[in-house]
């Protein structure tokens, strides 16, 4: 499948011409957890195939997460129908719900809160209707634990490994995170997250290739492309990957829903915007070596810089 990014709707992630790790979360202007983009159908097809072919890789849950999963179903359906009433609707009679997905022409009947009324777990069910990956962070005593999740489009991490893990442990592989005390600050920030006031942040990385499903489990396959980047093909082959991450407090289980919507754009497309090109070049030139390494850019950074310089020359010439 060849990926064509949507330039007009691309969530360009940079504000300054330098990049550091920080708590870059901001309160959401529109408190909706999901976004339906023009590639909805295509992505749902891919997502559903991954969920059925690789359930262990894409879906994990602990037994005590079920109440929280229903809470996520309620929140997502509520957001789908209020934001996209032309595409989604629900009929409720007491606890009997009928959910309609008009884009895919589907109808699902179930009894809210009754696990036996669905053929799968509630989070698994609702995952089939949204482009976002969905992570359920349960507050247990003084910490947050990854107690359930549906993850089809990870940026090189493993849900199967991370299931049941605490927030700080999850972020252990990130260089400098602990040393700078960022993990503690962000955890405290999340612990004080309140219902009714959701937050969002953008995360970015680069990849060679255009797969959405860059799981750690398949890294030995897709990672190889990193070695094939040249200054000639970088524009086509290298993609910037931006995750729109949203954080909602779920008041019933006092937990947090972390949703991730992944967008891809080739550097060729990114370069069509002069300011982006210039800023992105500056950021990469200045990016700390440990972040370059962590984001997996080291292999091809030189070719990439050559490519961007060429583009800048070209732009200046016109």
């Amino acid at each position: 499948m060849k990926w064509t990014g949507d330039l007009a709707h691309f969530p360009y992630p940079f504000k300054d011409s330098t990049y550091r790790y920080s708590n870059n979360s901001i309160p959401m202007k529109q408190p909706f957890c999901i976004e339906v983009t023009p590639s909805y159908k295509k992505e749902m097809l891919l997502k559903r195939k991954l969920l059925s072919d690789h359930p262990e890789r894409c879906y994990q849950s602990l037994p005590h997460s079920i109440t929280g999963q229903w809470e996520i179903v309620e929140l997502l359906i509520d957001h789908l129908i209020s934001q996209y009433p032309q595409h989604f609707s629900v009929e409720k009679e007491n606890n009997s719900w009928i959910f309609f997905n008009k884009i895919l022409d589907e109808k699902v009947e179930f009894i809210f809160g009754d696990e036996n009324s669905l053929s799968c777990e509630p989070l698994f069910f609702i995952s089939h209707h949204v482009q976002e990956d969905l992570i359920y962070m349960r507050q247990r005593d003084d910490d947050l634990y990854l107690d359930a999740g549906q993850l089809c489009f990870p940026a090189n991490w493993s849900l199967a490994f991370n299931i049941g893990m605490k927030f700080k442990n999850i972020h252990h592989p990130i260089p400098g995170f602990k040393e700078e005390g960022l993990d503690q600050r962000i955890l405290q920030f999340l612990m004080r997250l309140e219902a009714g006031t959701p937050w969002e942040r953008l995360n970015w990385s680069l990849m060679a290739g255009d797969r959405l499903d860059t799981s750690l489990e398949t890294f030995d396959q897709w990672g190889k492309l990193r070695k094939h980047v040249t200054r000639e093909n970088a524009g086509e082959l290298v993609h910037i990957r931006v995750e729109v991450q949203k954080l909602f407090r779920l008041p019933r289980t006092n937990s947090i829903l972390f949703s991730i919507h992944t967008h891809l754009l080739s550097l060729e497309q990114l370069s069509t915007n002069r300011e982006w090109l210039q800023q992105f070049y500056e950021i990469l030139s200045e990016l700390h070596a440990h972040i370059v390494e962590y984001k997996g850019i080291s292999h091809y950074k030189a070719s990439l810089m050559h490519y961007l310089e060429e583009q800048l020359e070209r732009v200046k010439a016109t």
């Binding site: 349960r138 507050q139 247990r140 005593d141 309140e194 219902a195 009714g196 407090r249 008041p251 006092n254």
Partner: peptide, 13 residues
């Protein structure tokens, strides 16, 4: 009124 908040949750352990 505010949304519900919980500063006094039941212990999970």
């Amino acid at each position: 009124i505010s949304y519900p908040k919980n500063h006094f949750p039941l212990s999970f352990k």
